[in-house]
Amino acid sequence: MDSGIQITRNGRPAIPAAPTPFSERAGGLRALAVDTLQVNVGKLCNQACKHCHVDASPIRTEIMSAEVVDECLRVIREFSIPTLDITGGAPELNPNFRRFVTEARWFGANVIVRHNLTVMHEDGQNDLPEFFAKNEVEIVSSLPYFQQTQTDAQRGTGVFERSISALRRLNDVGYGTSGKLKLNLVYNPVGAFLPPAQSAIEADFKRELKSRYGIVFNNLYTITNMPIARYLDWLRRSGNELSYITKLVGAFNPSTLEGLMCRSMISVDWTGRLFDCDFNQMLELGPTDGTPRTIFDFDAEKLRKRMIATADHCYGCTAGAGSSCGGTVA
């Protein structure tokens, strides 16, 4: 029995407590727009990364149904949502995934897929690069470091090598090289520390991946590890929880508040429930002020003005230069 997981779960997702409550530092946050519908189509994944805030793994069974996918598509069409951001788990393992992408593109949405690279090597997924290219999907892929040791330590043995071969496949179909096919990578710290300056580490990644493996990509996003779920378990087991939370609080930067992703997106879970972000989704921290609770009663006007539910984990998005699904925000 893993005692760390018992401590964190205890029947409910654990939210870390900071010495100074986030609400005292940030005040009340209100949404500014709903430009992005971020849809988590399920927790099934071919990997089980140590820092995963979804607790995704090959044994998870939560998968979004065709009915909920249809409702997301209706919302994109009816409300002209500019961007659909599909995440998981490994979203490609949802049987409705390709239809979801194709139809959203018909409706004119930009489609981002948070693609873990290695899923391309699973049965029936080998043509993913061609599928992505045909639909002009923007790909965002985690590669925590340009060396094998760090990447495998976080994402599992052999992941680095399989990620490199997947990146080569994506380059082969034009990703990262032409204007239309965007391939963005994500750096996140392999441990209990904050990410470096995005521009500096992006230059390293570009130089090293090109010289070592001949790989090119568009942008590198740095993302701060969020102290919840599996990563919080690890922080507790490794004796780093207090120092990490203290570090996040100490690095609080008020100039990140304006650009926080929760202010311009809405997150949908596999059952269709709405949240302010994927982290709140995992913590089951729903909207608080009577705004629509599910995709079935989506109301863009109400959601655009909603109050955002915050707790002390939100320090993860406001530390230093800030953190979002698109990298730094300040």
Binding site: Q147, P189, G191, L194, A200, I201
Partner: peptide, 12 residues
Amino acid sequence: TNSCLENGSNMD
């Protein structure tokens, strides 16, 4: 050590 890691250096 933390400062090096937070500035993107690796153990090599």
